[in-house]
Write a protein that binds this DNA or RNA. Structure first.
Length: 386
DNA sequence: TACCCGTGGGT
DNA sequence: TACCCAAGGGT
């Protein structure tokens, strides 16, 4: 471990040293640094007039703000709104969340995606009850120690709930700052510099409104496409605008095309008209959610062969594969799938949870009680319509 | 440090 | 269509 590593880990705020800003032309850094107070005032004035009215801004309850911050990770405001309202009615306090069972928590999260966020929220609530008397901690070190809370989320919560001067660097702020300094590399290659600017610009007297304003600027004016530079309070200082490169910044990195997997899925019926579902392992994709059993079709294998093999390997049952129920295409973050869904008749074997956490027979009317991934909702709808 | 982890909307 | 992106964190 080097000397600098010993006191700078990924999750702790960096020093506000001017040295690290030297990758930019020194005259520009000097110019921008001299305008910090002016930029702060301009943004806060704009926010007072044009800031969004969002429900989590009408409270200073750190629990409610925490919930909003987690839901908003990689998720648009419009998507979050109904989930946020429902969640606070269902789990109004840290203690209520801690005492719920995980299936109830995942059901409330169903459809939002990135389900580790819900599992971590649940674990963190239990940690807050155990270690902090049920009150969300008010220090950076305690907050960031909780599962699911990184540097940006900790800053978002502490500044919004307690008005603490802790910087943030979410997608909005990265884009705004990258344009402000005309960053010539993808933001992921310059996180240190972006963090420094976020800290440098943050006023100590009103960090709450400033962080919110910075995010609103990115979400409403400094958008990826068609940025409204003519309305921007930072227009005159913005290096990208002054060089007319705002559409090229932030720069993006090329990505490999997504692999496509063919999946065989069985809707397995027993003599009582019940259906077999299983609960996925806690770790990995869709952890803790329920699904209709199946798996990847191997090269040269028919869908029917695949379903028979997977149900034997994963659940130790034998089935007779019947008619195709439907075909579903779905895109995940790192791959695409085609779900080939077939009716199956259970013929032998007591289902065993070999490669899942739990397996059970359920009535059609019970399906909606279980949290399922979005790609399975069409299957449920089709079964209920039979 | 790359890579993993969902879903809906915009272009 | 296919791709990008949206209030990131864990490993």
């Amino acid at each position: 471990m080097t000397k600098s590593d010993s006191h700078q880990t990924e999750n702790t705020p960096r020093d506000r040293s001017v040295e690290s800003l030297e990758a930019l032309p020194s005259d520009f850094v000097e110019s921008l640094s001299g305008r910090v107070a002016s930029l702060q005032q301009a943004l806060l004035a704009w926010y007072a007039q044009q800031g969004r009215d969002l429900p989590w801004r009408q409270t200073r309850d750190p629990y409610a703000i925490w919930i909003s911050e987690i839901m908003l990770q990689q998720t648009q405001v419009k998507t979050v709104l109904p989930y946020y309202e429902r969640w606070l009615r269902q789990f109004p306090t840290v203690t209520a969340l801690a005492q719920a069972d995980q299936q109830t928590v995942l059901k409330a999260w169903e459809g939002l995606g990135y389900y580790a966020r819900a599992r971590n929220l649940h674990r963190a609530a239990q940690a807050i009850v155990a270690d902090h008397g049920g009150e969300f901690p008010s220090t950076f070190d305690a907050a960031i120690a909780l599962p699911g809370i990184g540097r940006t989320t900790a800053g978002g919560i502490l500044s919004a709930a307690f008005n603490q001067p802790v910087a943030i660097l979410d997608g909005n702020v990265k884009r705004v700052l990258a344009r402000l300094i005309a960053l010539r590399t993808p933001p992921s290659k310059a996180l240190d510099r972006l963090w420094l600017w976020s800290e440098r610009l943050l006023p100590t007297d009103n960090p709450r409104d400033f962080n919110q304003a910075l995010m609103d600027l990115g979400a409403t004016l400094c958008t990826r496409h068609r940025p409204a530079c003519l309305l921007c309070p930072w227009q005159s200082a913005c290096a990208a605008y002054n060089q007319n490169v705002q559409l090229e910044i932030p720069m993006t990195e090329a990505r490999a095309p997504l692999p496509h997997k063919q999946i065989g899925v069985g809707v397995v019926w027993n003599e009582q008209g019940q259906i077999l579902i299983d609960r996925r392992l806690q770790e990995g994709l869709l952890g803790g959610l329920w699904e209709f059993p199946g798996g990847k079709i191997e090269p040269g294998e028919t869908v029917e062969d695949c379903i028979r093999r997977e149900l034997q390997e994963e659940l130790a049952i034998e089935v007779e594969v019947g008619d195709r129920l439907m075909t579903i295409n779905h895109t995940y973050t790192h791959f695409k799938v085609t779900l080939n869904v077939f009716h199956c008749r259970h013929t032998a074997g007591e289902p065993q949870p070999i490669e899942c956490d739990e397996v059970r027979w359920v009535e059609v009317s019970e399906l909606e009680e279980f949290p399922f991934p979005k790609a399975n909702s069409q299957i449920i709808d089709a079964i209920k319509a039979l």
